[in-house]
Design a protein around this nucleic acid. Structure first.
Ligand SMILES: [Fe+3]
Ligand SMILES: [Fe+3]
Length: 918
DNA sequence: AATAAAAAAAAA
């Protein structure tokens, strides 16, 4: 394709992206204070300049036959430029544009702030030395080449209309935020224009015409235009019921805030955080011109579970079909999302446009991780948001994806120290972009909360709302705002200060904190959930005592929850309790089940032990034994909780399962008072000795801290008020200094030091890959650090650390045939082809049988395990996108297998059990 | 000798 044509295509497409696709909030970032028409011209100009570097002998020499006409036209190819190392043409573009700007009187730094856009159009920002390097100039060619470059650059500038604005560009460098976002839009324009099916090489149509038809064919839809209407009635209109206090306050805060800001909603499960975020997000989107919303959750399962609720809201929140993307690695397995692909906003019977509702559609062009995130509405794992802070190729695209939306992140408390680094840096950038962010969380330790606020406000600058009047709230707040003293000093960040609740002492819970540019406000909505007093006891780690306890407590019926810290402990307890109290009474759950079985278990538990109205409890005693899977996002209700000693916030999280729902007292049998028995430690020892496995999982320090805070005076029991006591206990457990008994000091100090080292190590590890603060001047070297893609295995950068687990797909082997496990509802028991890839329906059934192997297999003997499984693998499976690259574990007819010297046994009741083989 | 849960993948 002639270069001039590709450049003008890309420029025109960029213009269309501005006109017909981009959210006002993105235009505002690109404008960087300049008038809109200038900003659009800038974008078109830089898009048109992106491949200037292709007009160089180094690039042109790549396709030998094509060089002949150029030679004939007098363009020399010296041997030097015909041989590697070749300068990437993006860097050549940068050099050419820089030189052109300098010749127009720009100083070097200012010139670079513009030229770095073409320089980064392949997804990696150049390093400063890359452009200045003598080789770049050498490979630009001589004499006639320079003339061609000059002419082409002039031509692009003239066509775009930037020539008239050069004087104003010369005096103000482009802000780094605009550098990133413009680069991303240029990349999008380039990808669109590089599709030769839509933008053919040979074309008799005018540029305008071919671009118009190419654009239509790509089928992108405009950004969402939020129209929340009267905020007083918004919640009822969207969700068909009355708002709970936290929801009302969130909406009110969104309406009152003077500029884009960060809202942290801390509330227990059941206060309606999700709907609060959607409603508040809609208000924020309208006020600040955001063109979509992304809802990020900690797991793929919770993401999947969000889809229906989200699309239900979206139908009311938009008046036309809206691009939607499900962003996680198993999204293709989600049937709802798969069905959206068959809907087309424009065509025939699948056409959904014109029905006046915000139907979610999956657009053809918005597929794959990098492009999909650009859809107006996204549900995904938190990882997908954190990738915006991970250095790597095309990170600018992830910024563009977030820049045009309201960003909601759920269960923020669950992010560990490693993820926290990326979260901090994402917030810094989102603050700088003026992207409204809503974080949903259980109580955060004060320092954590402050770190999040500081990160956002470091980037934030005073901003103006899109709508002329920020309608101030006239209604009375439920609790007067009190002015706080100066917030705690923090390392190197700017500090968000303002009106906080409670200068000293613990904060209320639920709590909403809103920080804008330089100001901070806190509100304490009334809790909708039940307040209750939990009796906390500490008991020995003895299975027979456990049996007695459970038997006595449950003899009048009711539900006992037992949360263990390791799978082994959970499996053992379940076995003992089954033997003593009866098979059907006991349910076991943990993560070592097939994905499909695990989903089924969660669903069954919810149907039996969930909120009244959605669930039906059976009479008689019920015992649920599980690991940490019982701790998170499963809205079930226990009458008595037995838990292993765990970090204090997690214990409190677990305690939240006690007497959570309103129900008749008689359903709880004898367990009419919420009671929590903490086991998993030798309480008589001094210092307390937690179970070995628990120490391995959480570290000794966190467990000792929890023991101190929960058992303050060493007494055998105490009361905890839920939720009122939670902030105080969490703050205590995570305070810099904790007071421990004299006899503990040596052990405790030791453990603390180890924990700090570990945490520092993980933080340092994350910092290596994280993009850091918003630079003041330019993006040189910005996305570097690790070449290659951000995501992925193999020593590459990641947003989660820790050991890599090993996941396998389980099938059943009979004779030498492979079969889908018999109990699957779809294709159960079907034979899998030996010499061909399984057809999609079969492959999908197999893909649902994924199983994470325990560490004995996935860490200690990983090479042996992979080796043995690969040997049994079937090569033909590589042709199916559903199962390609996956390891397959065939179980015998009785669901057992030998693997790497271990004996594996699977049952739907117990999950995977691994024993040393004799 | 032995320890949770969780995520993860193509550009022009
Ligand atoms: Fe290029
Ligand atoms: Fe290009």
């Amino acid at each position: 394709m002639p270069l001039w044509r590709h450049l003008s295509d890309t420029a025109e497409v960029a213009g269309l992206l501005w006109d017909r696709w981009m959210a006002p909030s993105v235009r505002r970032i690109i404008a960087d204070g300049r008038p809109d028409d200038v900003a659009r011209t800038v974008l078109v100009w830089l898009a048109g300049s992106h491949d200037l570097g292709k007009a160089s002998p180094a690039f042109a020499a790549q396709v030998r036959p094509l060089t002949e006409p150029m030679r004939d036209a007098g363009l020399p190819f010296s041997p030097l430029v015909e041989h590697p190392p070749r300068t990437p043409h993006a860097q050549q573009s940068h050099r050419i544009l820089r030189q052109w700007l300098e010749s127009n009187g720009f100083d070097r730094d200012t010139a670079d702030s513009w030229a770095i856009v073409p320089g980064g159009h392949h997804g990696v920002a150049p390093g400063r030395d890359d452009i200045t390097h003598a080789g770049v100039a050498a490979q630009a060619g001589t004499g006639p080449w320079r003339g061609v470059q000059q002419e082409l650059t002039d031509w692009v500038a003239r066509n775009s209309g930037i020539t008239a604005h050069l004087d104003s560009l010369r005096t103000a460098a482009l802000a780094p935020t605009a550098q990133v976002v413009i680069t991303a839009v240029v990349i999008v324009a380039d990808w669109i224009a590089s599709d030769t099916a839509r933008f053919p090489c040979f074309d008799t149509r005018s540029t305008a015409e071919r671009v118009r038809s190419g654009w239509r064919d790509v089928g992108l839809l405009p950004a969402w235009s939020a129209d929340a209407g009267a905020v007083e009635t918004l919640f009822g209109r969207r969700f068909g019921r009355e708002a709970r206090p936290a929801q009302e306050e969130a909406i009110r805060a969104a309406q009152a805030i003077t500029g884009p800001g960060l809202m942290i909603i801390e509330a227990p499960m059941g206060e309606g955080k999700t709907e609060a975020a959607l409603a508040a997000g809609e208000v924020l989107a309208e006020r600040f011109g955001c063109g979509g919303l992304i809802f990020a959750l900690p797991t793929m399962a919770t993401s999947d579970a969000m889809v229906d609720r989200f699309t239900g809201w979206l139908r009311g929140a938009a008046q036309s079909a809206q691009p939607f993307f499900l962003a996680h690695s198993k999204a293709p397995l989600n049937p709802t999302f798969a069905a959206m692909r068959t809907l087309s906003p424009t065509t025939g019977d699948g056409g959904v446009d014109g029905c006046g509702a915000g139907v979610a559609v999956a657009l053809e062009w918005l597929t794959g991780r990098k492009k999909g995130m650009l859809a107006n509405f996204v549900i995904g794992t938190i990882d997908q948001v954190l990738y915006a802070a991970l250095r790597g190729r095309h990170v600018a695209l992830r910024h563009l994806a977030l820049a045009g939306k309201v960003v909601v992140i759920d269960e923020v408390h669950a992010a560990d120290v490693y993820m926290a680094v990326f979260l901090r840096d994402v917030l810094r950038w989102l603050g700088a972009y003026g992207v409204p962010v809503i974080l949903l969380s259980a109580t955060l330790p004060a320092a954590r909360r402050q770190e999040l606020l500081n990160a956002y406000s470091t980037g934030a600058r005073p901003a103006t709302p899109a709508s002329p009047t920020a309608r101030a709230s006239r209604r009375r707040r439920p609790r007067a705002l009190t002015s706080a003293g100066p917030p705690p000093p923090s390392c190197d960040e700017a500090t968000a200060s303002g009106e906080g609740l409670a200068g000293a002492g613990p904060l209320p819970y639920p709590l909403i904190t809103i920080a804008g540019a330089g100001s901070m406000v806190q509100v304490a909505p009334a809790a909708a959930g039940l307040a209750r007093t939990v009796r906390v006891e500490f008991a020995s780690d003895d299975e027979s005592e456990l049996v007695d306890l459970v038997r006595a407590a449950s003899q009048g019926g009711g539900v006992v929850g037992i949360i263990r810290n390791t799978v082994g402990r959970a499996q053992r307890s379940a076995a003992v309790l089954r033997a003593e109290l009866g098979e059907e009474v006991v349910t076991l759950t943990h993560s070592r089940y097939l994905a499909t079985d695990r989903m089924r278990r969660d669903r069954d538990l919810l149907a039996e032990l969930g909120a009244p109205g959605q669930a039906r409890r059976m009479p008689g005693p019920r015992i649920v034994v599980g690991t940490q899977v019982l701790e998170q996002s499963l809205d079930i209700d226990f009458d008595l909780l037995v838990t292993d000693l765990a970090p204090a916030d997690l214990i409190l999280q677990r305690m939240g399962r006690l007497h959570r729902h309103r129900r008749h007292a008689h359903e709880r049998g004898l367990m009419t008072k919420p009671r929590c028995v903490v086991v998993g430690a030798n309480w008589d020892a001094d210092p307390v000795e937690p179970d070995r496995g628990s120490v391995a999982v959480y570290g000794l320090a966190a467990l000792l801290r929890a023991a101190v805070v929960l058992r303050s005076d060493g007494s055998p029991g105490r009361d905890i008020e839920l939720p009122a006591d939670i902030p105080r206990l969490v703050d205590q457990a995570y305070a810099a200094e904790v007071e421990v008994p004299e006899a503990w000091c040596a052990t405790f100090d030791d453990a603390e030091q180890k924990a700090q080292q570990e945490s520092a190590g993980r933080t340092t590890g994350a910092e290596m890959f994280s993009i850091g603060k918003v630079p003041v001047l330019d993006l040189f070297g910005w996305s570097h650090a690790n070449a290659g893609d951000a995501e992925g295995h193999d020593g590459r950068a990641k947003v989660r650390d820790g050991e890599d687990g090993l996941e396998v797909l389980v099938v059943q082997q009979r004779g030498d045939g492979w079969f889908v496990l018999p109990w699957l509802s779809d294709c159960g028991g079907a034979e899998l082809p030996r010499d061909a890839a399984p057809e999609p329906r079969l492959a999908r059934a197999v893909a649902q049988c994924s199983l994470r192997l325990p560490r004995q297999l996935s860490v200690w003997r990983i090479d042996q395990v992979i080796g043995e499984l690969e040997r049994q693998g079937r090569a033909s499976w590589q042709q199916s996108p559903w199962v390609r690259g996956e390891l397959v574990l065939p179980l015998s007819e009785d669901l057992t297998a030998e693997l790497a010297g271990f004996r594996l046994r699977y049952s739907r009741r117990d999950g995977l059990v691994v024993e040393e083989a004799e």
